[in-house]
């Protein structure tokens, strides 16, 4: 009888089945991995830009990836010089034109 019971667990042969394969913890992990890879985008990464509008275009031109350069610093310097000079002109310098305002 013992022999028979041992045989009954063997028959039908449980070498592999779909349920058997997915029930194993390792196989479950692999399934997760497969799902993960299915979710991943394929091919070369698309050009994305977080910002839109002129600011986004400026960013794409001077900040992103290979385009990164020091030009924004120069733009900043230029902007500050123009702003600062115009303020200086408005508040002080125009009052001293032609040596009138010597004081």
């Amino acid at each position: 009888m013992i022999f028979k019971r041992a045989l009954s667990t063997l028959i039908p042969p449980k070498v592999v089945s779909v349920k058997h394969l997915t029930a194993a913890p390792n196989a479950k992990r692999i399934n997760n991995v497969v799902g993960f890879y299915k979710l991943l985008p394929q091919g070369p990464a698309p050009k994305i830009n977080n910002l839109s509008g002129p600011l986004g275009r400026y960013k794409a031109k001077y900040y992103d990836g290979e385009n990164a350069s020091g030009k924004p610093l120069l733009h900043l310097i230029g902007a500050i010089v123009v702003l600062g000079y115009s303020m200086e002109y408005y508040f002080h310098l125009r009052h001293h034109k032609n040596g009138e305002g010597e004081h």
Partner: peptide, 8 residues
């Protein structure tokens, strides 16, 4: 012509 002052 400030913007023309580039790194290049």
């Amino acid at each position: 012509n400030f913007c023309s002052l580039t790194l290049k």
